[in-house]
Design a protein around this nucleic acid. Sequence first.
RNA 1: GCCGGAGUGGUGGAACUGGCAGACACAGGGGACUUAAAAUCCCCUGUCCCGCAAGGGGCAUACGGGUUCGACCCCCGUCUCCGGCACCA
Length: 785
Amino acid sequence: KTFRSTEDPSVPREKRKYVLDMFPYPSAAGLHVGHPEGYFATDIYCRYLRMKGFQVLHPMGFDSFGLPAENYAIKTGTHPRVSTEQNIARFTTQIKSLGFSYDWDRRLSSCEPEYYRWTQWIFLKLWEKGLAYEAEVPINWCPSCQTGLANEEVKDGLCDRCGTPVVRRNLRQWILRITAFAERLLADLGMLNWSDSLKLMQTNWIGRSEGANVHFALESGAGSIEVYTTRPDTLFGATYMVLAPEHPLVQKITTPAQKKAVEDYIHAASMKSEMERTELAKDKTGVFTGAFAINPMNGKKIPVWISDYILISYGTGAIMAVPAHDERDFAFARKFDLPIVQVVSRDGSAAELSEADPTDGVAVNSGEFTGLPTAEVKKRIVEWLQKKGIGTSAVNYKIRDWIFSRQRYWGEPIPLVHCPTDGIVPVPYDQLPLKLPEVAKVVPTGTGESPLAAIPEWVNTTCPKCGGPAKRETNTMPQWAGSCWYYLRFLDPGNDTAFAAREKIDYWMPVDLYVGGAEHAVLHLLYARFWHKFLFDEGLVNSPEPFMRLINQGMILGEGGAKMSKSLGNVINPDDIVRDYGADTMRIYEMFMGPLEVSKPWSTRGIAGAKRFLERVWRTAELPLTDEEPTEALWRLLHKTVKKVSRDTDRLEFNTAIAQMMIFLNEAAGLASMPRKLWTPFVLLLSPYAPHLAEELWEKLGHAPSISRQPWPEWEEALTAEDSVEVVFQVNGKIRAKENLPVGMPEAELKEKAMGHERIRELLSGKQVRKVIVVPNKLVNIVAG
RNA sequence: GCCGGAGUGGUGGAACUGGCAGACACAGGGGACUUAAAAUCCCCUGUCCCGCAAGGGGCAUACGGGUUCGACCCCCGUCUCCGGCACCA
């Protein structure tokens, strides 16, 4: 069944909602119970919104390019399309069995040519604007996956996908200039309704820092070394310098006596894997180049070293070392017996340091700046450097450009051609999609090149510009390319003249609610924001950000609280749950487990409880219906329930909404006959949560289908308020008595009631009343001693 | 190491803005129905102490302090678990 969503311009913007799930990668393992958790949440929310009169867009698709399919294809000698299609069919069946209200007419799959045509189109736009460039750079190479990886795909020196240690390898790569957007990716986090922890993760990943670039003249007079520092205030304490082994100056400045040692070191450093570098982080290594530079502040001669603790890719690839105030420099100085000079002190006195002290304080040993606080010294030294023309303030980011090419078959071909006369030439837009060549099976090359390189009929082509012989780019795009813009294609999936019509983008975008796992914090969620900002700059979309509100659903853990994993044998298959308990029970159970964002363990007992609740609903529905008025108490309880379920559903607090429905049912189940006036609204409240059951109950009430198109019930505020409350009487903050009193009793009267209470009088006898605090409708606290 | 988040009964969790801690469920105990079992329905269920009982009192939201008439909630310190980053100058 499809819940079609259409654009209706008469619907005001605030009555339209785009609610999106992260589209799944159709793995061979099939759906996992964790998958639907987020889908249930968005589905309940969408059903609720539709009943509240919203126009809702709620699509589903598949992120279907990727390594597992290709690896499986290589192993079995088939085509990845075959297993991908099988997996998609299985996922679709599974998803459909769970009762989601998706608009299936908008289904898309990122590996289909009609889809990746536009992924290639956007890539070409990036290339035209100079945001995609080719370079031979040392990259993270996974020997098992036989492909390069982006920085974001390496965790603890291991391949994020297969856990193999990553090695460094120089390869020609296509790279996207995400760093050009670093400042905006950071600043615009402010406009997003995302969790603070997620925003912080992106903030840290972008890693902005402020400091200065400073030139240190070489003693030989042959130029200078430029460094980046966040602590220009410690310039007086710079007692040596260090270059990254790959720094271009190394060759120029190394003295003949040191040449051999330096070359050996560079060779050894280049052989180290990411893992080795990380593990050896504590033990510093390095070699003296034989050259010296001059500290511009005090004119002292300082030695220039090389070490792999300096990264060529950050800042200028060179540092001034201030061992007194930087841990790494301190360790290095200790190891190689280099001088340590304190230039910042907490109390103004200088003493022997036993470890680096990076905290702010007051300058010491700093010439004219001595005695000034750190912040002031920073400012003045940068001014001084600027005046001298040897330094300037600077900003740096940790984020690197995005290594965008993969040496694999199952991805979008990069639509560029290498021509001997014209260089790099784009495939013309009217020739997109540039389709993957049909192959019987995928064969890895083993050379670090894509399997596409081994298909001469495909590689050899003609140059679109000059018509001469040329070669196709053989790298493909990474898994993340397709997910950078799929939310836009959902708006207009059949469009063959644009990735989406502008009026549809204007109608729906940006996404109002986006739900998915937290594992994409610095991958998909960063990449998609980058592409979206580019499209925004090009005037192709209407918003600077794609996802206004984002929720990360918590993980569903195994029965004991451990992560579900094949090796532990604690994986729950949703098919079994649907078969044994039904989709509605699974929906209710997963939503009742706890807050959406929190990780929580699966419980077979718990799901039995959810089933019991729905069975009880069914039995209650079998009570004879009457048109009589319900009792006052039940009528009030109903209004309270409508209010609470509405409010909680609106806030995505489904667990407490379900609890309230249980409270209502516990009362209503005891009746001898059921007033329609009571039961009809309850069934409506239940319908987003248990749509199958609710649909049946709706018909049982004598209505035509479908309940999903009925208006959401209203409540009367007056009926949700009690007319009396239990007011607590405290003596010195301890509860000593309670009394049922009318709502709204004035403070003076409450105080009188409390003071007059027999038990309170007893406790107060012989004591002096010092103070009485009255909180209307809540409590009276008598302070006495 | 750095940066986050969390810690509440036997279990999952609830508690809105600092105002009755433990809603709702699960598990457990007792009872009804039944030849019996399942299912269902009803009652009890944080913990310790006093009391035959009705009842009363103490202690309890990781731990130790603080602010407040009053703290799961705010502040300081400690511990544990989870997540992220990790030579970023």
